[in-house]
Design a protein around this nucleic acid. Sequence first.
RNA 1: GGACGCUUAGCUUAGUGGUAGAGCGCCUGCUUCACACGCAGGAGGUCACUGGUUCAAUCCCAGUAGCGUCCACCA
Length: 730
Amino acid sequence: LERFTMDSDYSACVQQVFVDLFKKKLIYRGRRMVNWCPVSRTALSDEEVIMKEQKGFLYHFRVPVMGEKDRFLTIATTRPETIPGDTAIAVNPKDPRYTSLIGQFAIRPLPPELPEAQRRIPIIGDEHVDLEFGTGVLKVTPAHDPADFLIGQRHQLPSIEVIDESGLMNAEAGSALAGLDRIKARTAAAEQLKELGLLEKEEPYANQVGFSERADVPVEPRLSEQWFLRYPSTEKSRTIVSSGKLRFFPERWSKVYDHWMGNLQDWCISRQLWWGHRIPVWYRNQEVRCQIQSPGEGWTQDPDVLDTWFSSWLWPFATLGWPEKTPELKKFYPTTDLVTGPDIIFFWVARMIMAGFEYQGDLPFRNVYFTGLIRDGKGRKLSKSLGNSPDPLDLISKYGADGLRFGLLRIAPQGVDIRYDEKQMEEGRNFANKLWNACRFRQQQGPSNPQANPLNHPRTPFSDFLLSRLDRLEQELETLYQGYEFSQVAQVLYAFVWDEFCARFIETAKADFMNADSPTRPGTLATADFVLSRVLRLLHPYMPFITEELWLTLGLGDKTIQFSEWPKAGEVTFNVANTQTAESCYGTAEAGRRLRGEFGLSGSAKMKFLLKSSPSSRITDDDLRTLAKLLQVGSVEITSNPPKAPMTLTPWGELYLPLAGLLDPAKETARLQKEIAATEMARAREAAKLADPKMTAKAPPEKQEEWRKIEKEAVERIARLHEQLKLFTT
RNA sequence: GGACGCUUAGCUUAGUGGUAGAGCGCCUGCUUCACACGCAGGAGGUCACUGGUUCAAUCCCAGUAGCGUCCACCA
């Protein structure tokens, strides 16, 4: 394989930054443990299969202590093949069994052919040693174990490599092991110990071994030389977030960010991979140069590539142009918002901020919006290897692009994970269908007028009511957008279209259309056009395709909806008194439907309701006709002598459902008693609060007033229900 | 091991210091002339548990349990 050379502006930018940081002495060469995959093949050896099944052994072997005849330490290890690489024996300094030995020396048993003087290793005390594990004595192999490497650093131990890059034992491992595969060497080393009479026992032991995801062979921790970066501009990057100048949504992620920024470790930026941006460092004998172009004949480039995030953190520069200040960079840097997942706050977001300050002297974005992660039904992250990601194209063919989009947006709260459920997409599709049909209904009434202004026409209270709800919707949306609450935006739009526009407005508009000569008909049409025009625009970011189609089909604009103006909150005006009339009518209709539903009846032209209205309410014949339409009955008539019939309390008064012959007194009594009981419970709750002297002493007077009002209303309601009950019990 | 979250109706989930909301599912009734991908009703919740603060806690605080994420001798 030849190294792939990335010859692009992006790569140039990345390498240039490396060179710059190198000059600033922020990049340095250091040692660290890497998980090395020494073999590229897929078939496992017998020994490796055993490892994978976690059926390894724990080998207990003895090490003689120097200067003390017949004194041995017993060590338990899963990796006897690394004994030739041991440079110390460690015990816990708090372990009374061994404290006296700290500072003395032991003789490493392997390789046996070396003179004892070269196998002399110190016995050290280190907190890392687990008193409970094995014998409480640890062999320290700094070159082949991450934890041992750190112990080695703490105690300035030398490291001896005994396994080479291809996974074979080298000469340091001794003549008996040299050239063997590292895993075959394990049993060979155990055999050697046995021959030396130092092996005490082998016990089955299930130890965790990391396997390479791609090659499926055991990975080998290996000491290696790597490039490291000391992060630049850390202080500014930390305070910009903690001071609230750069905002995170939801805010709590800024705590996570701050915690990490306060504990930064140098970043290991080199990777031993075939693909990536190459490290711009050149070698010739002992000379080292950091520059993008080859210095000339005889120079070879560093074989490593950069960590993938080393290019990602420069994304704003690489895409907009750097180091020359391009017009794009001037215009778009800093940008307003970054949208990303919280799982890459450290990998990407934090590093982009630091790069921003270092190379632009300014933050790269002002707000970061963290989405939730979608998980499957079992709560797992969607991933390619698990194969639990649904195919978006399949979902689109089932639910439509807008249905999928809306369904997901509606359930995606800020920064909280969501469980993926196809039901949500179904709801999105149903909503798109609903919207489509609502517009189709409007289209059937005749052509739309894009300049429609409902205020220019006489209109029903229901038009004003819808306008008032539209006004409220737009105010609410503005607040929600400011708080980046995108799922709530979808939710309130959904509720508006379905409940206000379809369920309430269209149902009453139908009543208006029954009468072609209705003076309020033009007002109703204008209201529909006005509201649809705004709602389609409000929905457009969430459902781009269907809103575009409806926009053009209805003729609300002659160009794409994308070029239309965003509806500004506060522009909608309406008659407030009318909205109250409409609200009462809806409330009365809903109560009547409930009453009818109690008897398992559906509406019919033969059915009628009687209304004993309260003296204050002025109800017109038109209102009664609309009410009848909403109730799906023949008529609603005003009465002053209510019959012995089921009754419900409504905003407009007592609504009766005369049911000659159908009425079952027992059933009606039960219904009334149930309602009385429920009302009584609500009343008692308020009364209890008001009766408590501690509450009345401390609770705010407005609250108490509210409670008193609720109680009073409940009392009245109960009284009227009792009156009604008397009709059936006497 | 450390940090940060989550736990509300059968399911997926909003939300608030003083009456707990939605969609789906379920039950009942509707082939009502935009829509059965629909319409009208209904049942279903001690808001994980234990303490504390408060006149009042599902909400604030502390602890417990379960679940999750990120970072891991750095935490």
